[in-house]
């Protein structure tokens, strides 16, 4: 049985997919995951999920968003010379980054 492994580096971080392990049950999967995916890297927590339990939808079957120009929904479109609040600047920066990736898909 294959278990997908998600590793969280520090408390509060997201669990991100880092690989998978072969294991007969959940307990063994946790042990193998700890050994294979959290031995060399600092880790706060590990999730193991049976591969069969994961639903997948790929770009062949579905047309995902994020490829058309929807500049009206991004902060950088709305130009101003106002000195914005830190969290607005932060959000705008993240959105500019996301918009840059649109072309890479």
């Amino acid at each position: 049985m294959i278990w997908e492994v998600f590793r969280q580096e520090e408390q509060g971080d997201y669990h991100t997919h880092c690989g998978n392990v072969h294991a007969p049950d959940r307990e063994m999967a946790k042990q193998f995951a700890a050994i294979q995916h959290a031995r060399r890297k600092p880790t706060n927590s590990i999730w193991v999920v049976p591969k069969d339990e994961i639903g997948e939808l790929d770009a062949d079957e579905n047309s995902f968003g994020g490829v058309t120009d929807k500049s009206y929904r991004w902060a950088p479109t709305y130009k101003s010379d106002l000195d914005h609040a830190a969290e607005v600047i932060d959000s705008e920066g993240q959105q500019a980054e996301a918009e840059k990736q649109r072309g890479d898909a």
């Binding site: 902060a75 709305y78 609040a85 969290e87 959000s91």
Partner: peptide, 23 residues
């Protein structure tokens, strides 16, 4: 933690709302 994670995404999107409002 789940609340903080929701806030990450909300704050990411919200800058557009404020700047559109300003516009």
């Amino acid at each position: 933690e789940p609340y903080a994670h929701a806030m990450d995404k909300v704050c990411f999107e919200e800058g557009f709302h404020v700047k559109h409002g300003e516009s």
